[in-house]
Design a protein around this nucleic acid. Structure first.
Lengths: 222, 222
DNA sequence: AGAGGCACTGTACGGATATACAGTTCCCTC
DNA sequence: GAGGGAACTGTATATCCGTACAGTGCCTCT
């Protein structure tokens, strides 16, 4: 059964008190925090929370309130969001084939998440892109490598960029000559792509900030 | 000032009680746990721990015992070891220049630790080696890259190995032809190294299982 | 219209808890 | 050999704390 809004507030307070004071609160402290005028108000809430299986009360023991694992299911939305963000900070989405039109980090494009913090790279990586093809071979970027990408539309001449050209994602070295942008491969078998910025648009998705090969389960040695 | 052995025991108990019961103990519970016959024994120890700055006592509050950050400095050796191991499991030593004669993972060879779990790679990596030189360029292994290495003396023909030749560490592709071992570079500017196993010894330090470029603070984009 | 859950107020009390005071023993130091 | 800290015993007490009992107002079912 679900918690009432008030019960969720009480549960949040129990968690906060424990985290900040190192000790669960007494009934009196709950009363003070919520402005109750009777200890029974606190007691009733605790009993309700115990009945719903999110806490355990130890009879007779002072501060004998124990938050059970299941209490995490009833985190306030703010706390849930914070936790999800914290978890995401420790992992990066892996983008594989990119669907035409869709934003690069939209759900269908994300294959999985790799347990690596974005600030492992500098500037920080926002996602990993699975490299397709050999066009950047001579820059040491091989087919199947995971390219760490810092998401930004700003790029300077000479940087290795992830660009979107007619709904296709490509990794190239950027060269700017006035109104002409060149996307240079690092492989003589491929030709540079020339974009006239006054007529066509070039979307820079981000900058290459790192590279991982053979990471997270894809075996490099057989 | 340091804790006495007895005080360290009490501190350990405080930590364990908090972790297992979710609540700091009362004086009476300390008495019961240690077989004291007087609550003052517990009180005295708590006062001593407070004087030494490892806990905080909140006057009047039941179970008002707070373990301070500094208490971690006085962890029992067993707990300290467990923590250190847990920390090591989540990071890899980075080996730079290798001193002649010394084992590859000996202290002076380890530059720093990189916050990446060994089992990020498969088979698991035991250390990272900073690549020097361009001899494996055409395999996408560039100068300055961090090579993830699985430490093992066993290698098969065709694998990329980390070998030790006359006190020098080198990354090459291994080719075995009977009693002859060849270490092949991936760059036409370099020559293969041929080792006659019947006369010379070849020490295989490990296998390349992954690669990281631009990781952990070394900027790839400027 | 009655039952029941939720969210409280108000009062009371016994046992749990922190804590003071007065000692003892052992060991180390000056 | 006096002093002092560590590690306790033993007793006492004010107050903290959990908890029972008796209500009230409101809302939602059925």
């Amino acid at each position: 059964m679900d918690l009432t809004p008030r019960q969720a507030e009480i549960l949040d307070f129990l968690r906060r008190h424990r985290d900040e004071q190192g000790v669960p609160p007494t009934r009196a402290e709950i009363v003070a925090a919520f402005g109750f005028r009777s200890p029974t108000a606190a007691e009733d809430h605790l009993r309700a929370l115990e009945r719903k299986g999110v806490i355990e009360l130890r009879p007779g023991a002072s501060r004998g309130i124990r938050l059970l694992e299941r209490a995490d299911e009833y985190l306030s939305e703010a706390v849930q969001l914070a936790r999800r963000e914290a978890a995401n900070e420790a992992s990066l989405p892996l983008v594989g084939r990119v669907a035409a039109g869709a934003p690069i980090l939209s759900d269908p494009n994300v294959e999985t998440r790799i347990p690596l913090a974005g600030d492992f790279f500098r500037p920080r990586a926002h996602f990993l892109l699975r490299v397709q093809g050999e066009s950047m071979r001579d820059a040491g970027i091989l087919d199947g490598d995971l390219l760490a990408v810092h998401q930004t539309p700003e790029a300077r001449s000479g940087q290795t960029v992830v660009a979107r050209l007619e709904d296709e994602i490509t990794v190239k070295t950027l060269r700017l000559k006035g109104a002409i942008a060149e996307l240079l491969p690092a492989n003589p078998d491929f030709s540079p792509i020339v974009v006239d910025l006054s007529r066509e648009s070039l979307v820079i998705e981000g900058l290459a900030v790192g590279l991982i090969r053979g990471g997270f389960g894809s075996p490099l040695v057989r």
